[in-house]
Design a protein around this nucleic acid. Structure first.
Length: 793
DNA sequence: TGTGGCCGAGTTTTT
DNA sequence: CTCGGCCACA
């Protein structure tokens, strides 16, 4: 085989049907001279790949090989000589998706695809374009990218300068509003008067303009600007636009259902050149409406791009038959959709289960027990996931798993770059690289404490605002005057001279060494060295990790850009673990077994979604449910609890309406795995047999019904069930505590030892039982934990 | 400058 | 209930 694009079955997970070697299909292809990378694609996938000219919309259902189509298409375009790697624009939403696509294209097309310079997120690609033409939009090409935090702080300054009461008109709210405007492609001049006037007695639009002005002075852009300013660049400079329109012979867009208006406008402008735009997406998986995604973009595609070809991928390679049937029936309740039905030739598999539990604690207990059963049967823990609607639901599972000693990981926790020490360190680097970065300067100006307080900052601000210059420049001016007290003046002068020294080293010193030097000389590292709290060591470790990761970049600028657009948590592995995450975070992933807890009205669908967006909100929630179910390859396990604590109060809940939408023939109603099950079917719409066919006359269902009756009576007899329950609830913990306290055997820890736990913090060992410790945590109270989860404190 | 207490909010999250 | 932010006070 001389074909350079030959690959092994790269894509087993997408279930490619490899044709029998020498089979008719293979021989026909050989005769036609078709390239090997097209082997094993189904006709629709192949059609999507071979449709190269003009606009194409690929409606790719969950698990239908969407990524494979995209990556193969890129390889195909290159192999067919339609375009070279740098003439293809491929856009994704997340850095993760971009990275994966890059890897897979490299595998398929090899070195020919080297680089794919225009494969990236909307933001990364826009940034790249903006830096090249920054001066045309009033920026310098070294502009800083502000994150949400910086945005809000900048907004606070703007509001303060305008004497607007931050209490009544929170900076955060206006920052969000501006972000929303930017997502809709609206600059200050184009915000509808009604909306602009809604904030701060009609000043919203004006404040937006002032905020933009400040950004330019700081030589900064926020996330929204990256797209909006790029769009403005194109609109105001037809020559620049033409240059990119002709460069991008082919454009591919992943997750098109998640695009917002500004992204759509940006794409449409570029696509007006060669018209070869291929968008891949699934309207049924649009779950980001609340942050500006426009499902309409995908629903309207054919109107927006005349002559568009629409290809549906409906053959699912991920899930078994019953799971797909459940997903299909659920999503069929949505009205605003293009319509597609997943199917599989594979086995029916096990029916998704629905189990009712008394409360969230029993829910966690049952899930834990089921996972342990799976584990005993030899199932891998990293093929198990718990997908929740809201992150507060995670805590209960975490606590249960810690008790059980079940390894788990929470996906989507606080990110590396959001941690205080990382942000502080970055602020130092930003100041050195970009002295106009006021927000960074403000952050570290008195960190570590150096006696420069709010009063000094206020003076600097006044000066900066009066002269329309950055803070550091203002500071430089003020240390030459008598306006500051001698002590502050001296300190500030020292700080400024430190920064100018560090700045001067940027081009000569490797950025890693420079960073170490800055953190050392500024006294920042010492701040944490002196800190004797348990977290300090971890923070120092994070700082080291930061310096280490810098060394992979060509220079400080490249690193800072990466950090503002990309930086993710340094993954600490260590054996297979159960994943706990939100449904949103689960999109694009798949697991053998998926637990879907919390299917109750108010939580899922979430009340707020219904209140704020009505029918559209409900449909988005339903799509979320659909995403959840379609993550499962072989087992989907749905739960609902009858009681849940909401804002500290126990409330009786009603099973989710989505349960009523599941097809009776494909669902099994089961008892929860935990022994101490209450029925909890009282008041359940789900318990209404008439909704279902006769197939619900299963033993499990009958048991469930029986218990529903019992618990109804129980509830009546008990009166205030919420209160009674609250008392019950404290029971088990106590019992566990006592049990543990009784025995004490060999362990690395002794009673009275101080320990540190990742989740609960510091505490004192109150009892030891084998590898289990009872610990009185300073903050979290008494908990039973596994020895392996704590460190000596 | 640091800390305690009070008040308010409380879904999902990328870039 | 629990956390975070902000203000007032030491």
């Amino acid at each position: 085989m001389t074909d350079p694009f030959f690959i092994d079955d790269l894509d087993a997970d997408q279930g490619a049907h490899s044709p029998r070697p020498g089979g008719i299909a293979a021989r026909a292809r050989a005769a036609a001279g078709g390239p090997r990378y097209l082997d094993g694609l189904n006709p629709e996938q192949r059609e999507a790949i071979e449709a190269m000219d003009g606009p194409v919309l690929v409606l790719a259902g969950a698990g239908t090989g969407k990524t494979r189509v995209l990556t193969t298409k890129i390889a195909h375009l290159i192999a067919q000589g339609r375009a070279r790697a740098h003439e293809i624009l491929a856009v994704t939403f997340t850095n993760k998706a971009a990275r994966e696509m890059k890897e897979r294209v490299a595998l398929l097309a090899g070195p020919v695809a080297e680089g794919m310079p225009w494969l990236g997120t909307f933001h990364a690609i826009s940034t790249k374009i903006l830096r090249r033409h920054a001066e045309l939009v009033g920026l310098k090409s070294s502009f800083t990218i502000l994150d949400t935090d910086d945005q809000i702080r900048l907004m606070k300054q703007v509001l303060q300068a305008e004497n607007i009461d931050d209490k009544r008109w929170p900076a955060r709210a206006l920052a969000f509003q501006i972000d929303a405007w930017k997502n809709r492609g609206l600059d200050p001049a184009h915000v509808p008067a009604g909306e602009a006037g809604a904030f701060a007695n009609g000043k919203g639009g004006q404040l937006y303009a002032l905020y933009q002005e400040r950004l330019k002075i700081l030589n900064a852009a926020d996330f929204g600007d990256l797209l909006l300013e790029c769009l403005r660049l194109f609109k105001e400079n037809p020559d620049v636009l033409a240059q990119y329109q002709s460069r991008f012979r082919y454009m591919l867009v992943d997750e098109y259902q998640d695009t917002n208006i500004v992204q759509y406008l940006w794409l449409r402008l570029l696509a007006q050149g060669r018209h070869n735009v291929c968008c891949v997406g699934d309207d049924d998986q649009s779950i980001y409406g609340w942050r500006g995604a426009e499902v309409d973009n995908i629903l309207r595609f054919e109107a927006d791009f005349p002559g568009a070809k629409v290809i549906r991928l409906e053959r699912n390679y991920r899930s078994t038959g019953h799971i797909l049937a459940v997903a299909a029936s659920l999503i069929a309740h949505n009205e605003g959709r293009l319509g597609k039905t997943l199917f599989t030739d594979g086995e029916l598999g096990a029916k998704p289960t629905v189990a009712g539990v008394w409360d969230s604690e029993e829910e966690a207990r049952s899930v834990g027990e089921e996972i342990e059963q799976l584990q005993r049967k030899g199932h891998a823990l990293d093929e198990v996931a718990i997908l929740v609607r809201a992150s507060f639901q995670m805590r209960e599972f975490e606590e249960r798993f810690i008790t059980l000693g079940l390894p788990y990981r929470v996906i989507g926790g606080p990110r590396f770059y959001e941690r205080a020490e990382i942000r502080d360190a970055l602020a130092y680097l930003r100041c050195a690289a970009q002295p106009a970065d006021d927000l960074a300067f403000e952050r570290i100006f008195n960190l570590p404490k150096r006696g420069l307080g709010d009063a000094t900052l206020q003076l600097l601000h006044d000066c900066a605002r009066r002269q329309r210059i950055p803070l550091m420049q203002a500071a430089a001016a003020m240390v030459e005057t008598e306006e500051l007290k001698p002590k502050q003046r001296q300190t500030l002068r020292g700080l400024l001279s430190d920064f100018s020294r560090w700045s001067s080293l940027i081009d000569s010193k490797p950025q890693g060494e420079l960073a170490e030097m800055i953190l050392e000389e500024s006294g920042y590292t010492d701040l944490w060295r002196k800190d004797r709290t348990a977290e300090a060591a971890g923070r120092l470790e994070n700082l080291k990790e930061l310096v280490r990761s810098m060394e992979e970049f060509p220079d400080l600028g490249a690193f800072l850009e990466h950090i503002s657009l990309v930086m993710e948590a340094a993954g600490v592995d260590g054996g297979p673990r159960v994943s706990i995450m939100t449904l949103h975070a689960a999109k694009g992933l798949e697991f053998e077994t998926v637990f879907l807890p919390g299917w109750e009205e108010g939580l899922f669908p979430h009340q707020r979604s219904l209140d704020e967006s009505g029918r559209a909100g409900l449909e988005e929630e339903r799509r979320l449910a659909y995403v959840g179910v379609t993550r499962a390859k072989r087992r989907a396990k749905i739960y609902f609890a009858t009681n849940r604590r909401i804002h500290g109060l126990w409330q009786t809940t009603i099973p989710s309406r989505f349960l009523d939408e599941l097809p009776a023939d494909h669902v099994e109603v089961v008892e929860a795995a935990s022994g101490a099950a209450y029925g909890g079917y009282a008041q359940s719409r789900f318990a209404n047999m008439d909704t279902y066919g006769s197939s619900y006359a299963t033993p499990g269902w009958q048991r469930a019904r029986r218990r529903a009756e019992e618990s109804k009576h129980e509830a009546q007899g008990r009166g205030q069930q919420g209160k009674t329950y609250q008392q019950n609830r404290r029971g088990p913990l106590q019992i566990e505590g006592e049990l543990i306290a009784k025995s004490s055997t060999a362990s690395g820890f002794v009673k009275g030892a101080r320990v540190f736990h990742q989740k609960f913090g510091n505490g004192t060992v109150a009892g030891v039982d084998g590898n289990k410790l009872t610990v009185d945590f300073d903050k979290a109270g008494r908990k039973l934990v596994l020895e392996s989860f704590v460190q000596a404190g």
